[in-house]
Design a protein around this nucleic acid. Sequence first.
DNA 1: ACTGTTAATGCGAACGTTCGCACGAACGTT
DNA 2: AACGTTCGTGCGAACGTTCGCATTAACAGT
Lengths: 358, 358
Amino acid sequence: MPRRVTLKEVALRSGVSYQTVSKVINGQVQVAPDTAARIWQAVQELNYRPNYTARSLRAQRSFTIGYSWRPSPPDQANPILDTFLQSMFHAAEQRGYYLLCFPYHSETQRQIESYRELMDTRRVDGFVLSGVEYNDPRVLFLLEQKFPFVAFGRSNPELRFPSIDVDGGYGLRLATEHLLSQGHRKIAALAWPEESRVGNNRMEGYFSAMRAAGIEPLAEWIQRGEGRYAFGYDATRKLLALPEEIRPTAMVCLNDYMAVGAVKAIQDAGFRVGSQIGVTGFDDTPIAQYLTPPLTSVRQPVWEIGERLIALLLNLLEAKDVVQEWETILMQPQLVIRASSRKVDQHDWISEEVMRDI
Amino acid sequence: MPRRVTLKEVALRSGVSYQTVSKVINGQVQVAPDTAARIWQAVQELNYRPNYTARSLRAQRSFTIGYSWRPSPPDQANPILDTFLQSMFHAAEQRGYYLLCFPYHSETQRQIESYRELMDTRRVDGFVLSGVEYNDPRVLFLLEQKFPFVAFGRSNPELRFPSIDVDGGYGLRLATEHLLSQGHRKIAALAWPEESRVGNNRMEGYFSAMRAAGIEPLAEWIQRGEGRYAFGYDATRKLLALPEEIRPTAMVCLNDYMAVGAVKAIQDAGFRVGSQIGVTGFDDTPIAQYLTPPLTSVRQPVWEIGERLIALLLNLLEAKDVVQEWETILMQPQLVIRASSRKVDQHDWISEEVMRDI
DNA sequence: ACTGTTAATGCGAACGTTCGCACGAACGTT
DNA sequence: AACGTTCGTGCGAACGTTCGCATTAACAGT
């Protein structure tokens, strides 16, 4: 590990004071052309780079952003994590920042302690939050401390902070309208518990699309539970056991895992997914397109969200004075239509799939 | 954003010099009991925390570890990323370190530049690498610069650096032996190109298990290509088109995506997966257990790998003097047996699955 | 009472930057 | 020739720590 080159060494070599070197490098002053040339040459030859720590100490800024997220259970991977992280790294790097990632603690006390530690020791200049919920303790804490942050997701409407969210309602409206267009009228929904902010946003789209089509969803059609495979399977069995006249012929699911469970339950009950019973998921999990049948799902513009979150935060950090009023930026997801929601016959989508692969 | 509390303010409040406060906090000197009490009280009251940047500048260490990884294509998510990152964050936090994550650039020049930037500016004390290959440019660069790092994965045997790898050969041996135990003799392999170091390690397990059973694998059985769904599908069609006497009745796949493609091809060809043709994957992708039939796969001890990598690196950083000779630590994966490789009849595993879900 | 030892604390310097101000030289203006 | 301006450069200080050494006070041993 070669010893570091400092400003003083560059200065010595180019025959000026080290402060002058600093100013030339940062373009803060005009110097004689040959002085500048000597300095730049020395910088090249010695391969000088300013020590980030010293610069931070002086500037009282760390040029670092903190990010932590709730890990997904091992059987239910987060399909957007990789893309989301990379998009933030890229956006940050372009403006000279890096992301510091730190562990997620589930106990509130311990969690807040992590954030406090990083801000009090001045390791980070701001935070990115994700998965915020109603009365999120991190949001309350950071607002109280007046520490800069942005969030992926909304919280209580009265809490004002810069955030970006996917318009989940729009996504579910797309899915519901698509199923309606396939001729379905009795459409069920596999949803999350009522405390879920994200879940409620998405369900609004389902309700509004149904009502716009003149259909009032029955209470029996709304199944709420943990968003997992097992719940999707069980809930769908219940739905299929309803009397013929109110038995759903399609279902929208708030995530892909529930949808996969639903597909399995439908197949086990002897129905055909797509041609008989339509199913849509949410998230467009990587495996969704490889399922049998391929799953229709809602895809979020993840890369763009990451980029815009970082831009938002850095503008906040670098703004001198302005105190803004912040609104949530809503981004529109996209419906990826595959065979699980289309009323084409089974042979049809199989050959299509085969053709694409050959 | 409340202004920071410094050592001097604590000193003022407790009536000693700020240097003494520093020493007491770091436990470097013995002081009179009441002095210590006054200092600790002031620390409490003012909620003092040492400025990390100043400490780093003085210590010439950043207490930060850099990590970057090749992003997975959006249709083929990395199933272990979340767990791997969290395990490293936790291990690092316990010893007062954090992880700085930075973008992955595919052009070698640009990529090395990222590493150089972080080490030259002293932003990180060391790196974690993953997915290293033969003659990995990052490895060569860091070795040449004598900059501390550890790696997840092996490179050329003559390059010595601390690393941990999964014994992929062992994993494939387990899978192959399991298929042999189910009565299969003609077992094919869906593999990566010959340049793949990881692929070759895994294939050794296949070859050794086959030969130990007295079977010399036919060249036709080894299909090499990109580890994706489409390749798995195509390669399996070719395998199934072989003449009856050498047509494989089972196949091991070097990852789950190829295995999913293989399953589809087998089903399209009218065979039953599991009871007729056995399939195993690798990685235990989260969705593997929800497929039809559930996929037998090889699971890596990801959490432990992350923890041990960090421990290895921190020991390296904090070791005063010792120059060690480093060997690769091999960790053993685990075979998760599901219906895709078992010769039970179809009804059998369906009811088993249903029972678990109810 | 004087010295030697130990315990408790203070002081100055350093880590590598950036920033504001001052200083001298060169230049054009009256 | 004297005077303001501009240009190019240097100097001292500061950011908040930690570290080694110096200093003082207290105390025991002769």
